[in-house]
Design a protein around this nucleic acid. Structure first.
Lengths: 191, 191
DNA sequence: TCTGTTTGCCTAAAGGGTTTAGGCATGCGC
DNA sequence: GCGCATGCCTAAACCCTTTAGGCAAACAGA
């Protein structure tokens, strides 16, 4: 009866790998126990419940994503920063679909406040510094960017663009052009 | 032992109501059986499996959404059509979060091709007719609109904008302004 | 090195969801 | 009124979650 050396951190890492392999929805405490060749109940010494597992995977993914994003925007500004930042999201989602899905998991407010989610918001505002937007327009722009990035990536991942021309990479690039233009010439309210 | 009068259609409708009440993820064949005061196994005469239930709810939601959208864009064009169309999505998602989540359910290609999803795509292109975009820019624009609508609505629904000023309605309106401007002056490729 | 304690993984069991097989009665067609 | 199809049933297998309680391994102190 050799001990398996389980810890919440190792479980979260293994859960993240599992998510990328079989999809975040399919990540279960049972599947994780099988992966460690251990009985299911054993995991409950390290995790309060299956929700905690999912939350830990989400936090891990948010960290990774924030680290990549920080790296990408360092030393860039304007359109350069915008596309580098955007590409981090798209590339991460394509490399790690399970982790990306985990990162979209709704978190309770305290958890969210202590997560790397705040770094994401800060970085998005840092990117927008290159565009000279005053509040509340900056917040509107943050929400626009979040919507486009998340929306595009999740539609692409779910296959919505799979079987139609043109290449999704092309659309992504042209959409970033459009966003850049919009941010440089942010319009006043219409009516 | 009075017969309950189950049909796939009634099950889908009841499933849609259940989804709005408890969330699409929580819609289960068991819960539906309880709602009809019937044993679980009975539902399997009408549904191949629980996936079919989810798919039927998704199809129902796509129909409803397409009907509303068709109604909204009839007789409108340009920014008017754009905002009417966009508001249909946002309002539907807020009124029927479970159904909206169902509508985002990935469908297999044949099912998708036979669904109201095609009407959605057609209507989106109809809205874009007011903006004079040639292919492939029109497709890029379709993808942009889809991304923004879906992204914004799903972020708002998951509470991402809940506890921060300004009012999400205000951002929504300003984002639609920005989209309208972008579509009217769609930029050429940057580099 | 031995001892006591903590810790980690175990067995057992209950509860809920999915799905299939097979049975019986209801209600319709004749 | 009779036969048959259909609709809902019971039963059972399988998987996932979660809790309770047990035993042994690893560790700390003497």
């Amino acid at each position: 009866m050799v001990r398996a050396g389980l810890t919440p951190e190792r479980l979260a890492r293994a859960g993240a790998e599992l998510a990328d392999e079989v999809g975040f929805e399919q990540v279960t405490v049972s599947a994780l126990a099988r992966r460690f060749d251990v009985k299911v109940a054993s995991l409950y010494s390290h995790l309060r419940n299956s929700q905690e597992l999912k939350t830990r995977i989400a936090l891990l993914a948010l960290e990774e994503l924030a680290d990549r994003a920080a790296d990408a925007v360092a030393g860039r500004s304007g359109r350069d920063a915008l596309t580098a930042f955007a590409d981090v999201y798209r590339d991460y989602a394509r490399e790690h679909p399970g982790r990306y899905a985990a990162a979209r998991q709704p978190l309770d407010p305290e958890t969210a406040a202590a997560s790397a989610g705040v770094r994401h918001a800060q970085m998005m505002r840092a990117v927008l510094r290159g565009y000279d937007l005053a509040e509340p327009d900056q917040t509107h722009a943050v929400r626009l960017l979040g919507s486009v990035f998340h929306g595009y990536v999740s539609l692409e991942l779910s296959g919505a663009f799979s079987h139609s021309a043109p290449d999704p990479r092309e659309s992504w690039s042209r959409i970033l052009d459009a966003l850049d233009t919009t941010l440089r010439t942010w319009p006043a309210p219409a009516s």
